[in-house]
Simulated assay, not measured.
Amino acid sequence: MIFLDGENDQKISYHPIIPNDFFEDMESPWKGRVKRIHVEEAFAEVERAAEALSLAISEDFLPIISRIKATTAPLGGPKGEVVYAREHEAVWFKGKRFAPVAWAGTPGEEQIKQLRPAIDSKGRKVGLEWFTTVKVEDALTRYHEAGDKAKARVLELLRGLSAELQTKINILIFASMLLVIAKALFAHVRLNIRSLKSSI
Rank of each mutant, 00 (worst) to 15 (best):
G105H: 11
K151S: 06
V154I: 08
P63I: 05
S199R: 04
F3L: 07
V136H: 00
V180P: 03
V180N: 01
A52T: 12
D138S: 14
I37W: 07
G80L: 04
P19G: 09
L185R: 03
E27Q: 12
W30R: 02
L165G: 12
F22G: 01
A175N: 14
E27Y: 05
L62S: 13
G105I: 10
G123S: 01
G160P: 03
K125H: 02
A146G: 02
E89Y: 04
R36G: 08
S121H: 04
E110M: 06
G77Y: 09
E110Y: 05
A49D: 05
A52F: 03
L161Y: 08
P19K: 06
S199A: 13
F22C: 09
S176Y: 13
F93Y: 13
W103D: 10
A118D: 01
L115Q: 00
I119F: 05
A49K: 02
G32Q: 02
F93D: 04
I171D: 15
I12M: 06
Q111G: 06
E24K: 13
I2R: 01
D5T: 11
A85G: 00
R153S: 00
L179A: 08
S176N: 09
A139N: 12
F174H: 15
G127N: 01
A152T: 12
T132R: 02
V39P: 00
R159G: 02
R36A: 12
R190Y: 12
L196V: 11
R153I: 01
F61V: 11
A184C: 00
E7N: 02
R124D: 10
F174I: 09
L191Q: 14
